[in-house]
C-alpha cells in the first residue's frame, strides 16, 4: 500500500517538473514579444509625446503583464524618487536582480542592458535608433525562442512523465 502511494507521488512530481519546464519554454517567446511591444510604445512616447522617461516607463508597466511589468514599474518608481540615481544604474540593477523572475534568458537581457546604457542620454533621433536596434535583437531572440519551444516543449513534458515512470519501475 505504502509502495503504491510513493509510486504515485513520484509519478505526480515528475510530471509536474516536466510541465513546469515546458511552461518556461512556452513563456519565453511570449515575454520577449511583450518586451518588443513595450519598446514600441516607448518609441512612440519619446517620438511623439516627448514624455519624460520616468513617466514613459511607468506607462510601459501598464501595457505588459507580470512578471515583465514589475521590472518597468520598479525602474519608473526609482527614477521618480529623484535620489540622484542615473537611468543606467537603475536600469542595470533592476534588470539583473529581476530577470530570474521571468522566463527569459541572457541574450534578451544583454540587449535590454545595452539599451539602458543610452536611454534618456541623447536626442530624439538617436533614442529612436537605439530602441529600434534593441527591438531587432529581441525579435531575433524571439525567433530562436520559438524554435526552442517547438523542439523542447513537448519533449520536456513527456520526459517528465517517462522519467518518473522509470524511477517508479526501478523502485518496484
Amino acid at each position: 500500500m505504502m509502495k503504491l502511494a510513493g509510486a504515485l507521488l513520484v509519478l505526480f512530481a515528475g510530471t509536474m517538473i516536466g510541465y513546469l519546464q515546458a511552461a518556461r519554454f512556452a513563456a519565453r517567446p511570449r515575454q520577449i514579444r511583450q518586451l518588443t511591444h513595450a519598446l514600441q510604445r516607448l518609441e512612440t512616447e519619446i517620438q511623439y509625446g516627448q514624455t519624460p522617461l520616468p513617466e514613459a516607463i511607468g506607462r510601459l508597466a501598464a501595457i505588459v503583464q507580470p512578471p515583465v511589468s514589475a521590472l518597468f514599474a520598479e525602474i519608473s518608481e526609482t527614477l521618480s524618487r529623484a535620489d540622484g540615481t542615473t537611468v543606467r544604474e537603475c536600469w542595470d540593477r533592476t534588470l539583473r536582480s529581476g530577470w530570474s523572475a521571468t522566463s527569459m534568458k541572457k541574450p534578451e537581457m544583454e540587449a535590454m542592458l545595452r539599451l539602458g546604457a543610452t536611454l534618456g542620454g541623447s536626442g530624439r533621433e538617436d533614442q529612436i535608433k537605439h530602441i529600434r536596434l534593441a527591438m531587432h535583437q529581441l525579435q531575433a531572440e524571439e525567433v530562436s525562442a520559438r524554435d526552442e519551444q517547438h523542439r523542447y516543449e513537448k519533449m520536456s513534458r513527456s520526459l517528465g512523465v517517462l522519467g518518473a515512470a522509470l524511477v517508479v519501475i526501478i523502485m518496484l
Binding site: 514624455t51 520616468p54 538617436d126
Partner: peptide
C-alpha cells in the same frame, strides 16, 4: 555632473531639445 544633467532634464534629454 552626469547625475546633475539627468536630474535637470528629468532623465530625458530628448524631451528638452
Amino acid at each position: 555632473c552626469r547625475a546633475l544633467l539627468e536630474r535637470v532634464t528629468n532623465h530625458s534629454l530628448y524631451a528638452v531639445e
